[in-house]
């Protein structure tokens, strides 16, 4: 499963670069009309990331989650359909070691890719993205560190507002599920085989390209 995710991430990365390069080439050969309206290459999101776990799972029942951050690069491929790499992280403190095992804290890192569609209305951008990635819980306790890993999938609508053609702010709720790889007895599977998150992220959106200028 992990290998599949790695392959997928590699493919996503290569396709992102390819599309980005193709976009540059296309820019040079665009018609005059296109030149007048400019081209929307994509955008970068950098912001804070606040997860809230819900449902019957070990994170919701035995951890106090702290905030983190996220960074996403969205490269437009066809019109404003985008694809790109995604990175987020957050921290958590173990509050009930009876339910989790005897360790102190965790740092979650999610690396993956997103696909989606961006819709522009005047100074507002609305988008819907779906993602898949590799999620690592780097745990610390007893003077040692160990990992829990998962495959994460998520769906995230996003609303952003542009101050000027290149800079704006965004807010993006996200529904995320981590399919955990933890080996547990059958009666713990409900709690340890998956974690659900509702997350809120907000921050800066940097628009790439000149396409936002004339809106």
């Amino acid at each position: 499963m992990f290998l599949n995710i790695k392959t997928l991430l590699c493919a996503l990365f290569i396709s992102t670069i390819t599309f980005a390069q193709q976009t540059e080439t296309n820019l040079e050969t665009e018609s005059q009309a296109q030149k007048q309206t400019g081209h929307k290459i994509g955008n970068i999101l950098i912001g804070a990331y606040f997860p809230i776990a819900f449902g019957n799972n070990f994170v919701n029942e035995g951890m106090d989650l702290k905030g983190g951050g996220k960074i996403v690069l969205k490269v437009n491929t066809y019109k404003t359909f985008f694809v790109g790499p995604y990175f987020s992280f957050f921290n958590g403190k173990v509050t009930d070691s009876d339910l989790l095992g005897n360790y102190d804290n965790t740092a979650n890192i999610l690396m993956g890719g997103v696909v989606g569609y961006d819709y522009n209305i005047e100074n507002f951008d609305i988008s819907l993205a779906a993602g898949i990635g590799y999620s690592v819980y780097a745990n610390r306790g007893l003077g040692d560190s160990f990992k829990d890993t998962a495959t994460a999938v998520w769906l995230s609508p996003e609303l952003s507002y542009r101050f000027n053609p290149y800079l704006g702010v965004f807010v993006a709720p996200e529904l995320r599920r981590d399919f955990m790889n933890i080996d547990v007895p059958k009666e713990l599977e409900d709690s340890f085989k998956g974690v659900n998150y509702f997350t809120i992220s907000f921050g800066l959106r940097i628009n790439l390209g000149t396409g936002y200028k004339n809106q």
Binding site: Y103, G141, G143, D144, F146, T149, I182, D183, V184, P185
Partner: peptide, 12 residues
Amino acid sequence: DDVDIENNRRLL
């Protein structure tokens, strides 16, 4: 002689 915790495992 430190403990080495196993990744991705919980016991009941």
